[in-house]
Simulated scan of single mutants.
Amino acid sequence: MSNVAGAKTSREEEIAFLALEQVLGVDIKLADAGAGNRKPDGSWVYPDEQRRRGIVEVTSPPATSLMREWARAKKAGRPQIESGSIALRWNELAQVCAEMLAEGWARDNLDKLRAHPADERHLFLFSRGHSGGAHYFYRLSDSYADGSIEHVDDIVLPPGISDVWFRGRARRDLGQPLGSAELWLARYQTGSGWHRYVVRIEEQQLPSPNPRISDDGVPVGWRILKDRAIKSADS
């Protein structure tokens, strides 16, 4: 994704940053504010003796037509639905990942990460619709508590990339629609393979949804967003 000078994180970026902060124990700064599309979205320094540096790019498969249709549905007061079928591809999730990472939009983001010095380079993927990858991301991050484990092979990450994350489903307490939600994540890490996590994201910490797609419905000032600007002492 990309930010202009003075911009804040997008909703998708903030979800990714909050999730990574919980898992990695770091403090993520907005790396590309004012840099157009030349820098990755976020950066951090691990609180260890080596002071290792990590960077992350947050992106999704293209979903222009779906977003346009959802905007039209909101304007017309219709339900926002996604039609069509998705190939199951059971036990082929690693192949799906490899194919996705080879697509042009993914290569562009991987090239951006590789263009900057870092000890770790992370790609964080989310999907705006089931046909864009959500169906597969949900399965990658599934805890398989029901015992129906799907086999997922290891994948070979592109050179210079240490981690790829897949944002799975979120479960919100229906009685608290503006409270917290549990978010499932899958992570493939070079050298150690697949990992799965469940993190908790507070709605109050997130930017408003895209007004073209969804209504906010909260009082002004209710949201409390983290200041992720890089101060001069950090640069």
Rank of each mutant, 00 (worst) to 15 (best):
M1P: 09
M1N: 10
S2A: 15
V4S: 11
G6I: 04
K8E: 11
K8H: 13
S10R: 12
E13P: 08
E13G: 04
E14G: 02
E14S: 14
F17A: 15
F17H: 04
L18Y: 02
L20W: 00
L20C: 05
G25Y: 04
V26T: 11
I28M: 15
I28C: 13
I28V: 14
I28H: 00
A31E: 13
D32M: 07
A33I: 04
A35W: 13
R38S: 15
P40K: 11
G42N: 07
V45Q: 11
P47K: 02
V58E: 08
T59H: 07
W70G: 02
A71P: 05
A71D: 12
K74T: 09
A76Y: 07
S85N: 10
S85F: 10
S85D: 07
I86N: 01
A87M: 10
L88F: 11
N91P: 03
E92R: 15
E92H: 12
E92G: 02
A98E: 15
E99Q: 14
M100N: 05
M100Q: 12
L101D: 02
A102D: 14
A106L: 09
R107A: 10
N109E: 14
L110G: 05
D111N: 11
D111V: 03
L113G: 00
R114Q: 09
H116I: 07
P117I: 00
D119S: 11
D119V: 01
E120M: 10
H122V: 12
L123D: 03
F126I: 00
F126K: 10
H130P: 02
G132L: 00
G132H: 00
G132R: 05
G133R: 00
A134S: 12
A134E: 00
A134Q: 15
H135T: 09
F137A: 08
R139N: 08
L140F: 04
S143R: 15
A145H: 08
D146P: 08
D146E: 05
D146S: 10
D146H: 03
E150C: 00
V152C: 14
D153A: 08
I155E: 00
V156L: 14
V156K: 13
P158A: 09
P158V: 11
P159V: 03
I161N: 02
S162D: 13
V164E: 08
W165F: 04
R167K: 12
G168I: 00
G168E: 02
R169T: 10
A170C: 08
A170F: 09
A170R: 09
R171N: 10
L174D: 05
L174C: 10
L178W: 12
L178I: 06
S180M: 06
A181W: 00
L183Q: 14
L185N: 04
A186T: 09
Q189A: 15
Q189W: 07
G191M: 04
S192I: 08
R196M: 06
Y197N: 01
V198D: 07
V199S: 06
R200S: 13
I201R: 01
E202F: 06
Q204L: 01
Q205D: 15
L206H: 07
L206A: 01
S208F: 02
P211V: 04
R212C: 00
I213G: 02
I213R: 11
S214R: 11
G217D: 05
V218W: 11
V220Y: 10
G221R: 12
G221K: 03
W222F: 14
K226N: 11
R228D: 07
R228A: 01
A229S: 14
K231H: 13
S232N: 11
